[in-house]
Computed example of a mutant assay.
Amino acid sequence: MESEREHFNLSGPLHLTFVDWSNAHHRRSVAASLVQGVYILERDRQLKREHPIALAPPWWEFFHFKLLRQLVDDADHCTFGAIYEYRPPTPHGHQSLDASPRYVIAFRGTLTKAESFARDVELDLHIIRNGLHETSRFEIAIQAVRNMVASVGDSNVWLAGHSLGAAMAMLAGKTMAKNGTFVPAFLFNSPFLSAPIERIKDKRVKHGIRIASSVITAGLAFASKRNYNNQQADSRSVATDPFAALSSWVPCVFVNPGDPICSEYVGYFEHRKKMDEIGIGAIEKLATQNSLGGLLMSAMGRDSEALHLIPSAVLAVNLSPAQDFKEAHGIHQWWRPDLQLQSNIYKYT
């Protein structure tokens, strides 16, 4: 059954009659629309909607993109990603093409439809276990990213994703950044696995819990690393510190405070700043690189890196009220023209 939200002409950003690539709202709206295009590609496949009744093409054609390739999962043969090529019309004076991508690799999130739901949930569980990097879907994704970057360069490629797809794009971006390749990324409602501390209304209680959590996490991390290499963790140089090596990669992370799946990014970055202000930034510097779950798995001998731990980001928080979780977590919010957005840049030093 078709949903109104699948139709670009009914729910897409029709107000963007031209794209100014130097405008952050325009870039965000286009990236989110291309991710929506992947969702609808899979729905078209499931419902056997082909040209001329397919609903997916307007989500990229409106912005002068061409679908180059669909990324297909080898387990259930669903479409989980897409590679788009930007083919602008003859440039006009009001268009800024300097900041435009040549290619965008986009990933969808979980679809609650029978044909893809089981595999998507399996991938969601891999995120919880910090094991997304071990999946065949991610291997397909990272190979596509590597091949495209090798062909056209990192500055010509964007990554974009929503929810599970944002986790996929996040992991791909981190993997590339560890090798010195920094691919621009637009991450919508990316999962942050943590207790929902951000939903606590009392700021003093919330801050106290975060300090206690940081002290415990930093202590365990210090003990773990000291046991591993018999030297203090904070004596490592940037050259051998993978977290510091990632600091030059600054993805755009879009979160909604009403979405418990991603809202902890707000506290993650704000708390780091507050810890610096009260003079205990060294503790938070160690804590921010680790998660309790990741430390536990490492102690059990499993290679584990919490996906959500990133050193730097442009964090954009949607302050517009959401009626429910579905709206707070949805992709459609990110191209609304009346979006109340608060953005901050956080750099790891």
Rank of each mutant, 00 (worst) to 15 (best):
W59L: 06
Y84R: 09
A218H: 12
K113E: 11
P337Q: 11
L68R: 12
V38L: 07
A82C: 05
F107V: 00
E305M: 12
A75W: 05
S22V: 00
S247R: 10
K285L: 03
S312N: 05
F192Q: 08
I216Y: 14
D44G: 11
S96R: 15
N189I: 01
S248V: 00
S235W: 05
G165T: 03
N256L: 03
P242T: 09
L67E: 02
P242D: 15
F117S: 11
E122Q: 08
H51E: 00
R27S: 10
N147M: 09
A244G: 10
G219R: 14
S100R: 15
R146Y: 15
D73M: 05
F182Y: 14
L34H: 07
V215F: 10
P191A: 15
R45C: 13
A313F: 01
S3A: 11
V266C: 09
A114W: 04
G258F: 01
S237G: 09
K201H: 13
H25W: 03
R119N: 11
I197T: 13
A24I: 00
H77W: 09
D76Y: 10
F222E: 10
A169Q: 11
P257M: 02
L41M: 06
E85G: 11
R69E: 08
T175N: 10
A106T: 01
P337I: 00
A56D: 07
G219W: 15
A166W: 01
S136F: 14
S190L: 04
Y265R: 03
C252V: 01
G153A: 11
L246K: 14
M1H: 15
R199W: 07
L55F: 14
G153C: 13
M275W: 02
A299G: 08
L307N: 12
